[in-house]
Simulated scan of single mutants.
Amino acid sequence: MFVPATRIKSSPDVKNDGKARFDTGKPTLTQQGIDVDKLIRDNHEFIENVRKGTR
């Protein structure tokens, strides 16, 4: 039986929070100094409408 010593696979980095992250080279909203929680609160209705439109 062949058992490889190392497995080489192409996959995104998986961090501790379980989300796959792709390095796009662009700064995140938080790194740009944007308060994401406030952005979501201010645009909640718009975000909900967009999400409903994709169903």
Rank of each mutant, 00 (worst) to 15 (best):
M1G: 14
M1Q: 13
M1H: 14
M1K: 14
V3P: 00
P4F: 04
P4S: 03
P4G: 03
T6P: 00
T6D: 14
R7E: 12
R7Y: 08
R7W: 10
I8M: 08
I8S: 13
I8F: 10
I8A: 07
I8G: 08
K9N: 15
K9D: 15
K9G: 10
K9C: 15
S11K: 14
S11Y: 08
P12K: 04
P12M: 05
P12T: 03
P12G: 06
D13M: 13
D13T: 13
V14A: 06
K15N: 08
K15S: 11
N16I: 11
N16H: 14
N16F: 14
N16V: 13
D17H: 09
G18M: 08
K19G: 01
K19S: 05
A20K: 06
A20M: 09
R21S: 11
R21G: 00
F22E: 02
D23K: 07
D23E: 05
T24H: 07
T24Q: 04
G25D: 09
G25T: 00
K26A: 12
K26Y: 14
K26H: 15
P27C: 11
T28E: 07
T28N: 02
T28S: 04
T28F: 01
T28Q: 11
L29V: 08
L29D: 04
L29K: 11
L29R: 07
T30N: 15
T30L: 11
Q31M: 12
Q31Y: 04
Q31L: 10
Q31C: 03
Q31E: 15
Q32P: 00
Q32T: 03
Q32Y: 12
G33H: 00
D35M: 03
D35A: 04
D35F: 01
V36Q: 06
D37P: 03
D37L: 14
D37N: 13
K38A: 08
L39K: 07
L39N: 08
L39A: 13
I40H: 10
I40R: 03
I40W: 09
R41G: 04
D42V: 00
D42M: 03
D42T: 01
D42G: 02
N43C: 11
N43F: 06
N43S: 05
N43W: 01
E45R: 03
E45M: 02
E45L: 05
F46C: 01
F46S: 03
F46P: 00
I47E: 05
E48L: 14
E48I: 10
E48V: 09
E48T: 12
E48C: 12
N49R: 08
N49K: 05
V50L: 04
V50W: 07
R51D: 12
K52G: 03
G53D: 05
G53H: 02
G53V: 01
G53N: 02
G53C: 04
T54D: 10
T54H: 07
T54N: 10
T54M: 11
R55S: 06
